[in-house]
């Protein structure tokens, strides 16, 4: 054999502060491989605001701007504007935020960036809660999950809201390209990053990034868990280009949601009935995606 299926160059150095088995770290490593050195990245408050290292150290091999929590969209508009003023059209601009910084506090700035048509790629590494601050729920947290702000008590318990559908929100903006990705499929993610960066306009990627610390899962199982998120329909992998849907991975055989959930401490309290309800909801969503793919690919 002996063939590297993703770019060899390492622009993320070791010695960073990511937890064992961190999906968000792997996502960054892959994204930088895909983007290459002529890239500027803006990162708001999130795990990645801490993980590169304490001053003066950094694991980043590209220029990086740390920003406030809610500003990623505005920040990458600013970087792009300055590069345009300097005539540096080819430099890639990436905004890199967690789900809290994207789905919640940064949603307005992201919406503005997409609506303005900024030529930049926004990547959300989605670990489904505020992990950097210690596992508090976000609007990306799936229904049923334990977090420190949705504890399992006797009267009030676990996350009650449904996970926000960010891709649909992005598609509603008329974004040229939006996609979900998954750390278990590096080749697919690298391709999506490169495709997004080749588009002269705003693009959005959302990568499923297991968090063993927050999900109470085994670090070694991060990749297996990420694969199971696809086969159980918990986190479909698809892309939307100019409104046309394409599902990138259709499981040959659907695996039970229960198997996926019970590998994670954050779901361990759930009853079989509850998980069945969730599975029905995810199946309905999957059907909706299949339908969208069918409709949008019609001539």
């Amino acid at each position: 054999m002996g063939k590297l299926t993703i770019p060899e160059q390492e622009l993320m150095r070791p010695g960073h502060m990511g937890c064992l088995g961190c999906g968000g770290t792997l996502a960054m490593r892959l994204a930088l491989k895909a983007a290459g050195p002529d890239t500027i990245i803006s990162i708001p408050a999130c795990c990645w605001a801490v993980m590169p290292g304490v001053w003066p150290n950094t694991c980043m091999g590209i220029p990086m701007l740390y920003t406030a929590f809610e500003v990623t969209g505005a920040s990458i508009s600013g970087i792009r504007a300055a590069l345009d003023a300097k005539g540096k059209k080819d430099t890639n601009v990436i905004g890199w935020a967690g789900d809290g910084g994207t789905f919640d506090i940064g949603l307005q700035a992201l919406s503005g960036m997409v609506e303005r048509g900024t030529n930049a790629l926004y990547i959300c590494y989605d670990n489904e809660a505020y992990m950097n601050t210690g596992i508090q729920r976000s609007s990306s947290t799936p229904e049923g999950a334990w977090t420190t702000t949705t504890p399992v008590g006797t009267e009030n318990y676990w996350e009650q809201g449904r996970k926000k559908d960010m891709i649909s929100i992005m598609v509603a903006h008329g974004i040229p390209y939006a996609a979900t990705a998954n750390v278990a499929y590096p080749e697919d993610f690298v391709r999506k990053v490169q495709k997004a960066l080749s588009i002269d306009g705003p693009t959005y990627l959302q990568i499923f990034a297991p968090c063993p610390t927050g999900w109470k899962s085994q670090p070694a199982k991060s990749i297996k868990l990420a694969k199971e998120a696809i086969t159980s329909l918990a986190y479909p992998m698809y892309e939307v280009e100019n409104g046309v849907y394409k599902i990138n991975r259709k499981p040959k055989e659907q695996t039970p949601l229960k198997d996926y959930m019970l590998k994670q401490g954050r779901f361990r309290h759930l009853t079989e009935e509850f998980i069945e309800e969730q599975q029905k909801m995810l199946e309905a969503n999957w059907k909706r995606l299949l339908k969208l793919e069918e409709i949008t690919n019609e001539e």
Binding site: R13, P14, G15, H16, M17, L20, P52, G53, W55, P56, N57, T58, C59, M60, M64
Partner: peptide, 25 residues
């Protein structure tokens, strides 16, 4: 950088994290 006079106006990260021994974890 033990003297404040030698510190830049704002933290600028230029050194590699590779010197951090995370193998200790």
């Amino acid at each position: 950088m033990s003297k404040h006079q030698d510190i830049p106006l704002t933290p600028i990260n230029t050194e590699s994290s590779e010197k951090v021994r995370t193998g200790d974890w």
